[in-house]
Design a protein around this nucleic acid. Structure first.
Lengths: 140, 140
DNA sequence: TAAAGGTTTTTGGCGAACCTAACCCGGTGA
DNA sequence: TCACCGGGTTAGGTTCGCCAAAAACCTTTA
């Protein structure tokens, strides 16, 4: 069983909703995903079949353990990539967010790992140079 | 008229074929794109409708000016991203290639620009630290 | 010059993801 | 209590991208 990029996004949206509101509603998923409610229902049915979501119509919606795990992994990539773009490259937050949001579904583990190591290394070994770079970019 | 991610990939494949062989053939596009010939024909028809490709059945296939421009832009992002992953982050080439190949279709202009500036800055301002980082990673 | 062989195209069909319109359900206020 | 309303669901239909099978085409070779 494999999870499509789009399904990963649905799981992530649900995960965020659950964390922020404690409840996951079709309407709110639709808003985040930028689709209409019927599309959400389609997606929920498929995700339920794959055992990633608990879903009975008109009932409360929950991620299963498996679903939550995938969502968390995706979300943590999302957070990290955004941070990297902002803190290291000095990309404006909305753009960093946008780019991270796509890249997170494709980037390989090793690349994420290496990006983390790189950020740490640079921040420790030449913090001043990094600050200099960011300062120049923010001034533009 | 907008070009889908997948269409961009077709254009890029054709661009590479044209540069390498001087001729663009259905069979070769199929190989690069990892699809069967009928899918290529479908794609060519759509791209022709959009004015990105010159295509008459059984005739030679060419990119139009517009098509070539899109392909070139995509390809140059591809090349740069791969280089960044390899030269700055020390990612193994095949993985860098894979990640770049996806990211190139989504990454925003500003991010690419900033990555270029960053690479230049680091290579100039702390080349030794960078070498140190890459050395560590290559030894693992 | 005609048949063989490889390439390209057409046909018909499938799954993913989305939408509109219309229909259900459950809670609220008259 | 019941009509209404907003959110959820179903039905039916679109587009995109892909495929297998079969037909059409072109070139080459016997």
């Amino acid at each position: 069983m494999q999870v499509s990029k789009r399904e990963e996004e649905y799981l992530e949206a649900m995960y965020i909703l659950y964390r922020n509101k404690g409840v996951i509603r079709v309407k709110d998923i639709a808003k985040i995903m930028n689709v209409k409610p019927p599309s959400v229902v389609d997606a929920l049915k498929k995700l339920a079949e794959k055992g990633l979501v608990e879903y009975e119509k008109y009932d409360r919606i929950l991620l299963t353990e498996k679903g939550r795990k995938i969502a968390e992994e995706t979300y943590s990539k999302h957070v990290f990539l955004t941070k990297f773009f902002v803190d290291i490259l000095g990309i404006p937050p909305e753009i960093a967010e946008h780019d991270a949001c796509q890249f997170e579904h494709y980037v390989s583990e090793i690349t994420v790992k290496r990006m983390k190591e790189f950020a740490k290394f640079i921040q420790e070994q030449c913090p001043y140079v990094l600050k200099q770079f960011l300062k120049e970019k923010l001034e533009e």
